[in-house]
Design a protein around this nucleic acid. Sequence first.
DNA 1: CCCGATACTTTTTTT
DNA 2: AAGTATCGGG
Length: 723
Amino acid sequence: MDVSYILDDLNDAQRQAVTAESQRLLVLAGAGSGKTKVLVHRIAWMIKALNSSTHSVLAVTFTNKAANEMTSRIEQILSQPIPEIWCGTFHSISNRILRRHHVQADLEKDFSILDSDDQLRIIKRIVKRLEIDEDQWPADKVRWQINKWKDDGLRPNKIEDKGDFNIEILKKIYIDYENYMRSENLLDFAELILKSYELIRDNQDLRNLYHKKFKNILIDEFQDTNSIQFSWIKNFTGDGSNITAVGDDDQSIYGWRGAKIENINSFSKEKRTQIIRLEQNYRSTGNILNAANAVIGKNSNRLGKKLWTADSKGDPIHVFEAYSEQEEANFIVDTVVRATEDGDYYKDTAVLYRSNAQSRVIEEFLLRQNIPYIIYGGVRFYERLEIKNVISYLRLVINNNDNNALERAISVPTRGIGQKTLAELRRIADESGLSLFSAAKKVIEEKIFKGKGLNSLTSFINFIEDCSEKLYELPAHEFVEMIINQSGLIDHHMKEKGEKGKIRIENINELISAVKSFAIIHKNDDLSEFDSLIAAFLSSVSLDMGETQANKTDDAVQLMTLHSAKGLEFKTVLIVGMEESLFPHARSVESINELEEERRLCYVGITRARKKLFLTYTEYRRLYGRDSYNPPSRFITEIPDDHIEFIRPKQSFSSGYYGTVAKNKDKIQTLEYALGDNVVHSTFGEGVVLNIEGDGDSSRIQVSFHEVGTKWLVSAYANLKRI
DNA sequence: CCCGATACTTTTTTT
DNA sequence: AAGTATCGGG
């Protein structure tokens, strides 16, 4: 069969990467150079041209989204479904292995996975129980340390306290935490990876099995791997297997959560590692790319890569200095309006910022002009309070001994079982070595409590037991519906005032449909690793927290942080708030490593743009309830002048350390208006020119609009017509 | 148990 | 500024 079609449509470097026979391959893929394409085509090539079995492939990603996209693209190329391929996140593949070999891993079959919220709650309780000073060892710090240890592959017995009192305490908590997790049959995210790593490392049979199976191992976003993930990969690599790592050291922006950029370096230095660079960019114009290259060029210790494009230079990069964040937001609105007038969709434009708090003002202005927008980030579906509540009930019904679930379920909605009753129940459970559920039954049988407490407890326990009986009788979604109605959760949210309760109930109903569609999607799958469909659903929920926002509007301006923009592209990109202290963030400027990560973040932001790039900063901004005057970001000055066009140049009155960025004054285009002119704006309507600011050639113009009041506009961008 | 007052924090986020 | 955590009173 002719398989050359897989190689059509690839450039030389891409083709080399797809067909490379080396056992160790590192593909350094610059932004927009076809990274996913290479990965997907390489897998297709292995299967079609080299006759590798789909079972021999292990493809690892960081997000479910990436894994799903990869699978469906491979299926598309092969024109056949490949449900048996192991393509998933580090966590989901670890989960799969641990469920499959739970006996060897010394786990119960039905272990549950905790999210970091639950993890925190547990640590809090342990710290309290050990009577450790919570002010000196706050739970979130302890959690961070425990996760760091796990990410470094360290069990408590490998931690030396060297007489350090602080570490001694932390280690004590770590040990207690591990014991608790084991007794409760719980795994946290870090544990999934560490445990599966240890399992394969220490079990000769399994190691042989997987070495034989996984002949083709591929890792996406390799620059984001942490220590344990790197070891985890190595663990699966036998003599006959080959590894393909794809990544970009210049896009490493998750160092702060443990990603080790060094992994790329050390992999590249291993003998026999072949390195292929993908340097042709298919996304951005010449100006955008050169700007990106110039900025990232200021970093040290790069593996080195120079992106180029066959595209023309395109528009210059526009830099806009606003007086305030309001004016900045106004400029964003103007830019969006102009783009749509040129025929763009709203969704072609993205606004990127360093921190979430910056979105507020922008939202306000977009809302006021009735421009649809969508914000990425924030609370995800399965993290919502009301959803977590329902999930707790499901967990408790499936596993009565899930103390964590019981603690949450028993107190929402309130049912006359308060902290005092609960504390007493915990004490009894601790004393008798029973789970909370069993302790509650004991309390009821032996009538240890009396009056209201006993009644409430009895009806709660009865309810859970009734549900357990119906677990196998009802279709999954009806079962969930029953729990929701009979638990009192709906009534509880009905009582909430305002829109809040309504939204919560809507979300809960959405959960029912999620269960329904889960049942449909997996109706042909082998779910023998689970006792019930609900159990399978819960396991998938903890590894895929769901989209941040349902697709309310299809065509909307995209608002997100620079971090969440990684991997995406837009025709027009605005990077806003480009000021020292904001971007680079004040907390990052002290250390070179952190500053360089900020710079990579800037590189990521710039390379998101296909055609147009706008950078904006303000002279004045209210930050944390305070007035702040920060100089423009150093990253702006790192872009060569001749790629930039400054809109409304103005001597910044706080232009201190980094010099003024207002250069190229002569390039500004302005339009002539006179005070009192009647003008019309495409969205604001008709108005009168009140004020013109600027020396000679005005660059800003104040207009009193009949409909929307007085506004300052940039004349070059205001798109006003005289009437 | 719910409420309001008060103190405190404030970068980025996936699993 | 604004959100969250904690505590004490009703």
